[in-house]
Simulated scan of single mutants.
Amino acid sequence: MIGPRFATENRDVALTIWPILTLAITALCILIGLGFIRTFYVVQWLSPTEHAASNRPRIDVIVPARNEQDDIGDAIRSILAQQDVDAQITVINDHSTDQTGAIADSIAENDPRVRVLHDPPLADGWFGKANAMQHAYRSTNRHYVVFADADVIHSPRCFITALQHMQAKPCDFLSLFPNVQLVSFWENAIVPHLMVFGLVTFLNSKLDDPDSPHAVAAGAFMLTHRDVLDTIGGLSSVRNEALDDVMLARNVKAQGFKTCIALAPQLLSVRLFKNNRDAFWGFSKNILGAVSHIAFAFPAMLVPIVVYWIPITVLLIGLYRHNPIWIASGLSAYVAQAAILVLASRLAQMHPIKALAFPLSAIPIGCCFARAIYHHVVSDGVVWRGRVIRRGTE
Rank of each mutant, 00 (worst) to 15 (best):
Q82C: 05
D84N: 14
D84R: 04
D86N: 12
D86H: 09
A87V: 15
A87M: 15
Q88K: 08
Q88L: 06
I89K: 03
I89S: 08
I89Q: 07
I89T: 02
I89A: 04
T90Y: 05
T90N: 11
T90V: 15
V91Y: 01
V91K: 07
V91W: 04
N93F: 10
D94V: 13
D94W: 12
H95S: 10
H95G: 02
H95D: 11
S96H: 12
S96I: 12
T97W: 07
T97F: 09
T97M: 09
Q99P: 01
Q99A: 15
Q99M: 09
T100L: 09
A102T: 12
A102E: 15
I103W: 10
I103A: 03
I103G: 06
I103R: 10
I103T: 08
I103V: 11
D105S: 14
D105I: 06
D105L: 11
S106G: 13
I107K: 06
I107Q: 01
A108E: 11
E109G: 15
E109I: 09
E109F: 11
N110E: 14
N110V: 00
N110P: 00
D111S: 11
D111V: 08
P112F: 06
P112C: 00
V114D: 05
R115P: 01
V116T: 07
V116D: 06
V116Y: 05
L117P: 05
L117I: 15
H118Y: 08
H118R: 14
H118K: 12
H118V: 01
D119K: 12
D119Y: 08
P120H: 03
P120N: 03
L122D: 06
L122N: 06
A123Q: 15
A123V: 13
D124L: 13
D124F: 10
W126E: 05
F127H: 10
F127D: 07
F127E: 05
F127V: 02
G128N: 10
K129I: 13
K129N: 13
A130V: 09
A130L: 02
N131R: 04
N131L: 10
N131Y: 02
N131A: 14
N131F: 02
A132W: 06
A132R: 05
M133W: 00
M133I: 03
Q134N: 15
H135S: 10
A136M: 11
A136K: 04
A136L: 00
A136S: 07
A136C: 07
Y137D: 00
R138L: 14
S139F: 10
S139P: 00
T140P: 11
T140I: 10
T140E: 01
N141Y: 10
N141G: 12
R142F: 09
R142M: 01
H143G: 01
H143P: 05
H143A: 12
H143V: 09
H143R: 13
Y144H: 13
V145L: 13
V145W: 13
V146R: 03
V146K: 04
V146I: 15
V146Q: 03
F147R: 10
A148M: 11
A148Q: 07
A148V: 13
A148N: 14
D149F: 03
D149H: 03
D149Y: 02
A150T: 08
A150M: 00
A150W: 03
A150G: 15
D151L: 09
D151C: 14
D151M: 02
